[in-house]
Simulated scan of single mutants.
Amino acid sequence: MLLRSLALAAALLFPAAALPDQLFEDVRILAADDMAGRLVGTPGSAKARAYLIGRMQGIGIEPFGEGYAQPFTAKHKEQVLNGVNLVGRIRGTGTSDRVLVVGAHYDHFGSRDGKVLNGADDNASGVAALLAIAADFARNRPTHDVIFALWDAEEQGLYGAHAFVDSPPVPRTRIALNLNLDMLSRSDKGELWVAGAHHYPFLRARFERLAKEAPVTLKIGHDGPPWTGSDDWTAGSDHYAFHRKGIPFAYLGVEDYPDYHQPSDDFDTIPKAFFARSAATAVMAARLFERELGEIAAEAGRGK
């Protein structure tokens, strides 16, 4: 019954007959040439942050302290990276202290050989889906606190997510689950994947319920046998920062395609109907995990 209501809510949020304009507009703006590929520590990154801060304020995401920006430094090879995460929350209506963290990285690679790598799918798409989730929770408040984190310097080594987990804005023991959104809009097979059940088996039944009702073809895997090497996504995106601390994760993403990490990963190449269904699935997933966050925390041994 819960999943049926979530499916209905997703259908209303992203009706098949109409394109979800704000979702696409967020990707179009973030993946425009004037963002210069959103490389960490560059003016393009700062411009993307300014846009995202405006969107967070408009949605009603509450900052921790005086602002959303949480700067960090990281040593990458022989270079010091000066990154900035954007972090805020929507407070829950209940009394539980369990927290859901919804995250997506907003950075990309800048330019290569004079061509901008706009990173429309990787990962303007995940950022746009995160903002859609936040807008949904702002309209219909969650029971638990939900933190929304936009991470920097993922492409160099997940540095923003590691900085967040190493110094979180709430005690780490309160974080029951990370929902990570990284590459949601491109799939040659029309498939979205969810990873995490191999490491946290109590999530599998939830993933299966979600897959039955999702408006997209949702498959489970890419986090253990038979997947190996780069096909095992356990350490492949920001959720790994949580996993290394024993915090369960659910990672939504697509498999690689020819435009991956290429200048051709542009807004115009996104199949919009698939992206709308994929983003709607992300909203459904966030609603499901938030509603069952207490049970997830207990099953993970992270308190009541």
Rank of each mutant, 00 (worst) to 15 (best):
L3G: 02
R4N: 15
A7V: 02
L13R: 15
A16M: 12
A16T: 13
A17G: 07
D34P: 00
M35A: 00
R38E: 03
V40M: 08
S45V: 08
A48H: 04
I61M: 03
G65R: 04
E66K: 12
G67F: 05
A69W: 03
Q70C: 11
F72H: 14
V80L: 08
N82Q: 13
G83I: 10
R91W: 11
R91T: 14
G94W: 00
S96G: 13
S96W: 10
R98Y: 08
L100K: 02
L100Q: 03
V101Y: 02
V101Q: 03
D107R: 08
H108A: 12
H108S: 12
K115T: 01
K115G: 00
L117C: 05
N118K: 12
A120I: 01
D122L: 09
D122P: 07
N123D: 15
A124Q: 09
S125G: 13
G126M: 03
A132F: 00
A135H: 11
D136M: 00
F137K: 00
H144Y: 03
V146C: 05
Y159R: 00
G160F: 09
G160Y: 10
V170A: 08
P171V: 00
A176C: 00
D182F: 04
M183K: 04
L184C: 09
R186G: 04
Y200R: 06
P201I: 06
F202H: 04
E208D: 07
A211N: 10
V216W: 01
L218D: 03
K219C: 06
H222G: 01
D223P: 03
P225L: 02
G229N: 02
G236M: 05
A241S: 14
Y251L: 15
P258K: 02
D259R: 11
Y260S: 12
P263I: 04
F267V: 02
P271R: 07
P271L: 08
F274G: 03
A276H: 10
S278G: 13
S278R: 11
A286P: 14
F289C: 09
F289E: 03
F289S: 06
E290M: 08
G301W: 04
R302Q: 01
